[in-house]
Simulated assay, not measured.
Amino acid sequence: MTRNRLYLLLSLGLLAGYGWLIWASWQTTHHSDFTPCFFKNATGIACPSCGVTRSVLQVSHGHITEAILLNPLGLIMAAIMITAPFWLLYDVILKKDTLYTSYKKTEQLIRIKWVAIILIILILINWAWNIQKGL
């Protein structure tokens, strides 16, 4: 992936993510039972990322423990949503590619077999935990 494509996709993803959080925040105050998860809607079983939006909302209210208990992936997503806009602006304004370089290094790391296996196992454990919690 090129630098410009990554930065465009990340920018669009951040806009969509913040828009989604605003909508989800409104939905929580109006007690809607709607879930956008295709997997859960089709099977009735929580997916590995079920609860991430609620977890990020908990982080935004300063409830870190509750966020981790809902879905630990939400903490990672919140960190990305907080740091990525500033990192993007830094690179664009100063005409650098530090974010792109970090992305490429992370991509290489994830391609290492044992790292990928550990990450897959962690996602499967999180998925089992989501199912056990009844998300």
Rank of each mutant, 00 (worst) to 15 (best):
N4R: 10
N4V: 13
N4A: 08
R5G: 02
L6I: 14
L6V: 06
Y7L: 14
Y7S: 07
Y7G: 09
L8W: 09
L8F: 14
L9T: 05
L9S: 12
L10D: 01
S11C: 03
S11T: 15
L12Q: 04
G13H: 06
L14S: 10
L15F: 10
A16T: 05
A16S: 12
G17E: 01
Y18S: 12
G19S: 10
G19F: 10
W20L: 15
I22T: 14
A24I: 02
S25M: 07
Q27K: 04
T28A: 14
T29H: 08
H30G: 05
H30S: 13
H30L: 11
H31G: 00
D33K: 14
T35W: 09
P36W: 06
P36S: 06
P36A: 11
C37E: 00
F38K: 15
F38V: 12
F38A: 12
F39A: 07
F39K: 03
N41G: 06
N41F: 10
N41W: 05
A42Y: 08
G44W: 04
G44C: 09
A46D: 01
P48N: 04
P48E: 00
P48F: 05
R54A: 03
R54V: 00
V56M: 04
Q58N: 09
S60R: 09
G62Y: 05
G62C: 06
G62F: 04
G62E: 08
I64S: 01
I64A: 03
T65Q: 14
E66L: 05
E66R: 13
I68T: 05
L70Y: 03
N71A: 02
L73V: 00
L73P: 07
L73I: 03
G74Q: 10
G74E: 02
L75P: 05
L75A: 10
L75D: 00
L75Y: 01
I76S: 02
A78P: 06
A79H: 02
A79S: 12
I80E: 00
I82K: 14
I82H: 12
T83R: 11
P85Q: 13
P85A: 07
P85K: 15
W87A: 15
L88N: 09
Y90I: 07
Y90P: 04
Y90S: 15
D91T: 06
L94V: 00
K95D: 11
L99R: 01
Y100S: 09
S102H: 00
S102N: 04
K104Y: 07
K104G: 03
K105R: 14
K105F: 00
T106I: 05
T106K: 03
T106W: 06
E107S: 14
Q108C: 12
Q108N: 13
I110E: 04
I110N: 11
R111G: 15
I112R: 15
I112D: 01
I112M: 11
K113C: 11
K113T: 12
K113H: 06
K113D: 04
W114T: 10
W114C: 10
V115R: 02
I117A: 11
I117S: 08
I118M: 15
I118G: 02
I118V: 15
L119Q: 12
L119P: 08
I121Q: 13
I121K: 13
I121N: 12
I123Q: 12
I123F: 13
I123K: 14
I125K: 12
I125Y: 08
I125W: 11
N126V: 07
N126L: 11
A128V: 15
W129C: 05
N130L: 08
N130F: 03
I131M: 07
I131R: 02
Q132M: 06
K133N: 06
G134E: 02
G134C: 00
L135V: 05
